[in-house]
């Protein structure tokens, strides 16, 4: 299913299944967007306040989660 182009397929599954992928594979290649987002996801597991939607009209990237 993941090979199908989502723009042509109205029933595509939205989430990417990476459960069988080693984390190091997703974190490889340094400061790529995928590595940053994987890092963020991992950090969020440890956030005592949980992931919270932040105020949009303020430009700051919350790195805590």
């Amino acid at each position: 299913m993941e090979n199908a182009s989502t723009t042509d397929n109205p029933t595509w599954p939205p989430l990417l299944d990476v459960t069988r992928r080693p984390m190091v594979e997703l974190l490889a290649n340094g400061d790529t967007a995928l590595a940053r987002c994987t890092n963020r996801l991992i950090r969020s597991l440890d956030d005592p306040d949980g992931v919270i939607s932040a105020f949009q009209n303020y430009a700051f990237q919350n790195l805590a989660s």
Partner: peptide
Amino acid sequence: EDIITLLLGGGGQS
């Protein structure tokens, strides 16, 4: 980055 994180199963921050 919010969309990518959400696609990976995480939460959005905006």
